[in-house]
Amino acid sequence: MIRTLYIDEMNTLHVCDSPYDIEVTPKWLWVDMSEPTKEENLLLSQFFHFHPLSIEDATTVKQRPKYKEYDDYLFFVFHAIDLRTMKPEEIDIFINSTLIVTYHKEASEEVDKVWHTMLNKKPNEKVTTNEVMYKTLDAIVDNYFPFVYDLEDKVFSFEDRHSVDISTENLIDETFDLREDLLLIRRTVLPMRDLVYRLLEGKVLALSKKQKIFLHHINDHLIKQVEMIESSREMTADIRDNYISLNSFRMNNIMKILTIYSVIFMPLTLIAGIYGMNFDVMPELHWKYGYLAVWIVMIAITVGMIGYFRIKKWF
């Protein structure tokens, strides 16, 4: 689907489907390409004459957040987060001082939000292509917060659950699932933060003071999100290590008890083995009190070893 918004020389806002429908030279033009078909993709090359490499990046290859400079425009790749699957969705932007083209293969809530904002602009209110890009970027970044907060809440809930949930295995599985979600959103937020930082520190865009403040605002949000993600990852790592240590502690206690029992029964097994041999000449075998004496010796050995282990505080 293609939709077009432009301003003529009289600063009047117009909306149409295709840029081919524009009958005047626009002062400012925004074309949004949402879930475009192969035929609609031809607009990028046949109408706008964008560089083939930027068209390839937008239409075929999954890109990381980045920007590239071309002769008469800039090409940006942003990543939004799908509200249902938590997977990144690519939003590509071709922009210069009078033109902006937003390209996304899935419907974008963020772009729709900015589109309606532009439609509600007051007459003669100044609008720039940079403003559209910044507002789109701001909407993308703001939509990260619900996911980050939700993951942080899940991490904090573990502290309340560990005292009542006796299933260590379940908690470990949930912890690894949570770390996978954190890694997924981290791979989206970190490159976006780096991109915004490069825009702030570089000279790619001619930024006014107001635009720099707006971009700093976006950068601050990204920094906060990265810190929250890193904090949550550290907490999940601590939870994972604690439960692994607890499991190891329990296993060590079990092995210690089994070892103690094994050590106690070793001399008893030795005695039983000796007197279980089928020799004819064994004095104790024909002794009247031999059976009782063996039992007394075995009980004495057992009590003595248990007492020794208790004195050593081995259990």
Rank of each mutant, 00 (worst) to 15 (best):
M1A: 08
T4Q: 02
Y6K: 06
I7V: 14
D8Q: 03
M10G: 11
T12Y: 07
D17E: 13
Y20T: 12
Y20R: 11
E23F: 11
D32M: 02
M33W: 04
E40Q: 12
N41E: 15
L44W: 06
F48C: 02
H49T: 14
F50P: 12
F50C: 14
S54H: 06
E56V: 08
E56K: 13
T59A: 00
T60W: 00
P65G: 03
P65N: 04
F76K: 01
I81Y: 09
L83K: 15
L83A: 15
E89H: 03
I91W: 00
I91G: 02
I100E: 01
V101R: 02
E109R: 09
D112M: 03
K113M: 11
W115Y: 09
W115T: 02
W115A: 00
H116V: 10
M118A: 10
M118E: 07
L119Q: 14
K121Y: 13
K122L: 09
E125I: 09
V127K: 01
M133G: 00
Y134A: 05
K135P: 01
K135W: 02
V141C: 01
N143S: 12
Y144E: 03
P146M: 02
K154P: 04
V155L: 01
S157D: 14
F158E: 05
E159Q: 10
E159N: 10
R161V: 09
E169C: 01
N170E: 12
L171H: 03
L171N: 06
D173Y: 10
F176V: 11
F176S: 05
F176L: 08
D177Q: 14
D177F: 13
R179L: 04
E180R: 12
L182P: 04
I185C: 06
I185P: 02
I185L: 00
R187A: 03
R187M: 02
T188R: 05
V189A: 01
Y197W: 07
K209Q: 13
H221P: 06
K224Q: 15
E227D: 14
E230V: 05
S231F: 03
T236H: 08
R240E: 15
N242G: 09
I244P: 04
N252A: 11
K256A: 10
L258G: 07
L258A: 07
Y261L: 15
V263T: 15
V263I: 11
F265W: 03
L268G: 07
I271H: 08
A272F: 12
M277D: 07
M282F: 06
W295T: 11
I296N: 12
I296A: 15
I296K: 11
G304F: 13
G304K: 11
G307D: 11
R310V: 10
W314L: 12
